[in-house]
């Protein structure tokens, strides 16, 4: 039994390492084949080139899609973070009947099949006479981003010692002044983190954009269109690599900020510090 106890962590950690490899496997091949001279992704590489990357800025459709994605991503992240702030503040600060149900409803898009969420919204938008455009894509992205925004923000708001705001009032500060001088600086990292998370999700989101857009393509839709042509694969791989890199950088910053926000508020129990 003691032998097993010593053996288990070792076995588990090799399993964990293998599992991480499995998780990163597909992510690794995109950059590798994006610098391959041949169009077919297979080993061994026939040669190394940055040719596919150099071609990217020369594709007008891609430039358009990039702008569209940025526009949608920025709008969606701001809107969903604002809605997320309101909801997260309400959930963490107040107690009222129906609170859990409302929270459940707001978080629901996280566990519903995206296709069904997308076609439902499509139906309503058509019924309401909205013509499909980047605007409808933003509306859809906001819905699926809010749950993530909520998750990030509640972890930042939770444990926010209410006596900090009381202390501010006690020292003569008005309600607005307290918000500006205490609440906002304390939760700013969580808010920025939420903006980054939502932007990343919107940037990578395909299904909802696919159903809700009119003629304008976002980056994932552009990629989807290119996938039909085998010859265009390396270009898609290059673009995909850049997107991966962007997501990676944004998410790392978001995670660092989220932790900082959580640490700030959690420390403020004051009793253990």
């Amino acid at each position: 039994m003691t032998a097993m106890r010593r053996f288990l962590p070792g076995w588990l950690s090799s399993y964990a390492t293998l599992y991480i490899l499995f998780l990163y496997l597909p992510v690794i091949f995109l950059p590798i084949f994006s610098i391959n001279t041949a169009a077919t992704p297979k080993f061994p590489l026939s040669g190394i080139t940055l040719h596919w990357y150099e071609d990217l800025p020369k594709t007008p459709a891609l430039i358009d899609a990039t702008w569209n994605s940025l526009l949608v991503g920025i709008s969606a992240s701001i809107l969903s973070t604002v809605l997320g702030i309101l909801a997260a503040r309400s959930i963490t600060r107040y107690r009222y009947p129906g609170r859990r149900t409302i929270n459940g409803l707001i978080m629901a898009p996280l566990v519903l099949p995206e296709v069904i969420v997308a076609i439902s919204m499509l139906l309503v938008m058509l019924q309401l006479g909205l013509s499909l455009s980047l605007f409808t894509v933003v509306l859809g992205h906001v819905l699926v981003c809010i749950p993530y925004s909520m998750t990030v923000l509640t972890s930042g708001f939770e444990g926010f010692d209410r006596s900090l705001e009381e202390a501010s009032a006690d020292l003569g500060e008005s309600a607005f002044g307290t918000f500006r001088r205490v609440t906002l600086p304390m939760v700013a990292p969580a808010i920025i983190s939420s903006l980054l998370v939502c932007f990343t999700i919107s940037l990578d989101e395909f299904i909802i954009a696919f159903f809700l857009t009119g003629t304008e393509a976002t980056l994932p839709i552009y990629i989807w269109g290119q996938l039909r042509f085998a010859a265009k694969l390396p270009g898609v791989l290059a673009l995909g690599t850049l997107l991966l890199l962007a997501s990676f950088v944004l998410m790392t910053i978001a995670e660092i900020l989220r932790r900082r926000a959580a640490r700030r508020t959690q420390n403020e129990g004051g009793l253990h510090a």
Partner: peptide
């Protein structure tokens, strides 16, 4: 890896 595009992972 989860934060990278789903579409790209499937493609990979």
């Amino acid at each position: 890896p989860f934060w990278t595009s789903y579409l790209l992972r499937v493609m990979s």
